[in-house]
Each structure stands twice: as C-alpha cells, then as structure tokens.
C-alpha cells in the first residue's frame, strides 16, 4: 500500500469516526454537549478541594488549586481516547458488525484505529480548550478564587499538549487490544483505566503522595511528565521534562502498537475478530 492509499484510508476512517460520534444529533447540540461533559470533569476535583478547605476552615492554596485544575483540564484528551478506545471494538465488532470487513481490506486495523483516533482527538481538542476556559472563568470570576496561570511559553504549552495527545494514542491502541480478546470488560475497561490514572497519573496529587514507593511511576506512565510540563509552562514551580514526556509517550505508542498487533493476531487465531453475542 503506498502512502497515498494509506492517507485515503486514514481520511475515510477519521471521517467515519466523526460521523459515528456526531451524527446522532444536530451539530450545535453535539458540540454543546461535548463541552458540558468535560467541563464537569474539569471542575469536579478543584471544587472538591475548595469545599474541603472551606469545611475545615483552612485557606485555599492557589498553587495547589492550580495544580489540580490543570491536571483535570488537560486529562480531557485521555478521557476521550479512553472512552472511545474502550468501546470501539464492541461497537464495531458487535453492534455495527464492520470489524471483519475492515480487517480483510487492503488497509489495516492500526490505520483504521488511528483514523478513528484523529476524529476523537479533534473533538477532544475543542472540548479541552472550551472546558479549560469556562472552568477558569467559573473558579476565578464566579467563585472568586485565584488560579496562578502565567504562561511562560505558549510553544511549550502546545508541545506539552501534543505530548499528552501522543500518550493518549497509546491508550487508544491498548484498550481495544484487551477488548479484542474478551468482551467481558467492554463496559468497564475505560473506567478502570481512568480510575487508575486519577490515582497514579499526577492529576490530582503527585503520585509519590500515595507512597514513596510509587514515585518511579512519574517516569513510567506516559501522562505524568506531559501534565507536569503543561503545569511548568503555565508558570507553576514543578519538576518536569518535556523531552522525556515525548520520549516516554512515544515508547508507549510503540509498545501499544506491538500489543495491538499481537492482540489482533491472537483474536484471529481464536476466531474472535467477528465474534458476537455472549462469550
């Protein structure tokens, strides 16, 4: 397959992805709803922190509030990737029954999945930006708390955001890899993954707060360094390494592609590529 054919296949997959995600309602309703949901998840934990402080009568620490706020706001690309990545196999294999027909084309499943990822990435980018701005306005102008966001370098922020997206590609291949081999987790896998991320991903607190033993995870998971790079680029005094963020995210993508290929091969061997119903 030459590059032109791959690009055509990628474009078609992204287009289908966009249609599957959006064509169940009017475009404006769709966009509105795609902002409300991440807005809620962005606000949830910063508000929890504020309420906790108010309840105990302790002043709100703006630095920590900003830490939590940036963590939850920039988790949005991962949430979108995990939600679609965690259900795409069951949808395509069982609901629409298209997995087998895509598999036997001259394109490839990794290309198709990447196309679907691009559609999700585009939607999540809009959601991330709008929920970030709206949450900021709510916390600062309605609740009256300060968020210490002083962007030191816009290119760095963008680069860190790209690193987050690179990391989320890995998730988009890893979760389907599991679902190819079992359909028992199709409803819960996304949430297990996100639950773990909240605990270990430097989203709400540095992972070492759980236990000093957990500290190395900062350099193992794809999200920690990328998120901390966003925080650093917004002026927070935090240790972060953007180059490492790219490196570890790319490693995860490579690993995830290998796992994905293995899972597809195994699914084919076990006759699971087109298996529907209860099993």
């Amino acid at each position: 397959m030459d590059l032109k054919q791959i690009l055509r296949s990628l474009y078609a997959s992204a287009w289908v992805g966009w249609q599957v995600e959006s064509n169940w309602t009017e475009p404006f309703v769709f966009i509105g709803l795609q902002i409300i949901r991440p807005l809620a998840s962005t606000l949830l934990f910063p508000l929890l922190y504020i309420v906790g402080m108010n309840f105990t009568g302790t002043p709100v620490d703006s630095t920590y509030l900003t830490y939590v706020f940036v963590g939850t706001a920039f988790l949005t690309p991962y949430i979108f990737a995990a939600e679609t990545g965690g259900t795409i196999v069951s949808q395509d294999r069982e609901r629409y029954g298209v997995m087998k027909s895509i598999y036997i084309t001259t394109s490839s499943l990794p290309t198709y999945f990447f196309g679907r990822f691009l559609a999700i990435a585009a939607i999540s980018l809009v959601s991330t930006v709008f929920s970030f701005i709206l949450s900021y306005l709510f916390i600062v102008h309605i609740l009256g708390y300060s968020l210490l966001l002083t962007p030191t370098s816009i290119p760095n922020i963008l680069a860190a955001l790209i690193a987050i997206y690179v990391g989320s590609v890995a998730i988009f291949y890893l979760l389907p890899s599991i679902n190819f081999l079992t359909n028992k987790l199709q409803w819960s896998l996304t949430y297990y993954f996100l639950g773990l991320l909240y605990l270990l991903g430097d989203i709400l607190f540095p992972v070492e707060s759980l236990s000093p033993w957990a500290a190395p995870l900062k350099y193992v998971l794809p999200i920690n360094q990328a998120l901390n790079s966003v925080r650093a680029s917004f002026g927070l005094d935090i240790e972060a390494n953007l180059t490492y963020a790219f490196l570890i995210s790319s490693l995860w993508v490579t690993l995830s592609l290998a796992v994905f290929g293995g899972a597809v091969r195994r699914a084919r061997a076990k006759g699971l590529l087109d298996k529907i119903g209860w099993w």
């Binding site: 922190y49 402080m53 302790t58 920590y64 939590v68 607190f205 707060s209």
Partner: peptide, 11 residues
C-alpha cells in the same frame, strides 16, 4: 483518588 486529595490537602 478523592480521599487522597482530601488527605494531601489536609482535610
């Protein structure tokens, strides 16, 4: 995760 956030922030 929520409980750890409460703990880390002193509440």
């Amino acid at each position: 995760a929520a409980a750890t956030l409460y703990r880390v922030s002193g509440s």
